[in-house]
Design a protein around this nucleic acid. Structure first.
Lengths: 162, 162
DNA sequence: TATTGTTATACTCTATAACTATA
DNA sequence: TATAGTTATAGAGTATAACAATA
């Protein structure tokens, strides 16, 4: 998905550490890439959501805001395609961001059905703060990896994600 | 995936390919490891769920079945911890698998509060078939990676997932 | 008093279909 | 006839609290 989902996140994992489900780490399941990807995502987006809460954002709304700030002037349809979300979910996300003055909908003059999402100045400021939080969250989630390993991971993921 | 979620999966991505949201691939967001992980997970579990449908399983129930077949005799509490799911969700998943005769709940004699989940013969047969489907799904999801790269990815993910 | 499993409930996320306005 | 955005709704997934049995 891309666009991700809220998850139980950190609390559950503290529980696991406190507890003793480490026996299960040697299991077949624990070595499946799909499982590991899902677990990494769950931990990562859980942490990111917790940290973004201070800006009243979630990973979802952050993603939309980020693309609105990208300079690519995405339409809602493009956001839906790229984030693997239904167009109706984009409506709700853009509504929220628009209500707080972070983005505006501008009708594309070349196709008046289409609405381009662009960030306001306030939206770009919000994004700057959110981006730095996301960077800290990512840094924490990847704390066991060296910079080189992080680049390797990024490249491998990029090849399977697109 | 661990604990995962159903996702829109393949259809959305065909739409993306058909469409032209490729502009957004150069975006900052598209290079964030968290985003790529989420997207990879979404594609992967979407595909796996589609393929597991013929066995009337999902990634969730497959994960529980897999751990029930692991020989580690996990309790429901351990399943919840390991899969980052709430204990009440485990109840529902085990109920389903128990109803179809794939697993049984056995009271742990050393702690009669705890119930150990063990696979039946039918459950192990079901798991064999599911496992081969999961392997095919994973193979398709990782088709752009060499065997070596897959191992690298597995190791990196393992270090951030646990 | 604390923990395992269970039930119930509310909330979020996801999927689908129908509508409108534009093309 | 088809597409972008919107609305409404139902379903799946998630989080929380309370309870019984057991420790």
């Amino acid at each position: 998905m891309s666009a991700q989902t809220t998850t139980r996140g950190n609390d559950a994992d503290l529980a696991e550490n406190a507890n003793g489900a480490q026996r299960l780490h040697t299991t077949e399941l624990a070595n499946e890439i799909e499982f590991l990807t899902a677990r990494a995502r769950s931990l990562g987006s859980g942490r990111a959501n917790n940290m973004l809460a201070e800006l009243d954002l979630k990973v979802r709304s952050y993603s939309v805001l980020s693309l609105a700030c990208s300079g690519e002037n995405p339409s809602q349809r493009e956001l839906a395609d790229f984030l693997s979300l239904d167009p109706s979910q984009i409506v709700a996300l853009v509504d929220q961001l628009e209500r707080r003055g972070a983005v505006t909908r501008e009708t594309d003059p070349r196709d008046r059905r289409s609405k381009v999402i662009v960030a306001t100045t306030a939206g770009r400021n919000l994004y700057k703060r959110a981006e730095s939080i996301i960077r800290r969250a990512e840094d924490q989630s990847l704390s066991t990896l060296s910079p080189q390993e992080r680049e390797t991971l990024r490249d491998l993921l990029k090849r399977i994600a697109f």
